[in-house]
């Protein structure tokens, strides 16, 4: 339930902030906040299968082999 609430909440926040910022003439900020809210909503989207990327997943993929190599070198030396 928390997931669904956050999904709806973040989308609503994004839309409302978009309109409020747009009204103040800050179109660029409005677009950014809307995109950010959509990105946040993506983490809690009920219908998305699979994982929305987190930094953990990204860095685990990116640094795994480098980490293995470095630690291996340290252990050897």
């Amino acid at each position: 339930m928390l997931n669904e609430a956050l999904f709806v909440g973040s989308l609503c926040y994004g839309v409302v902030s978009f309109f409020l910022l747009n009204k103040k003439g800050k179109r660029y900020d409005a677009v950014i906040i809307f995109l950010l809210s959509c990105f946040i909503a993506g983490y809690n989207a009920p219908f998305i299968e699979g994982k929305w990327p987190t930094v953990e997943i990204l860095y685990s993929g990116l640094y795994k082999s480098l980490s293995q190599y470095i630690f291996q070198q340290i252990l050897i030396k």
Partner: peptide
């Protein structure tokens, strides 16, 4: 970003959802 005030809550939300996942 020129007006950061609305982004404070959005970033807080981002931190929460990212941490929970």
């Amino acid at each position: 970003i020129s007006k950061m005030k609305p982004f404070v809550l959005a970033i807080g939300l981002l931190f929460f959802v990212h941490a929970s996942k």
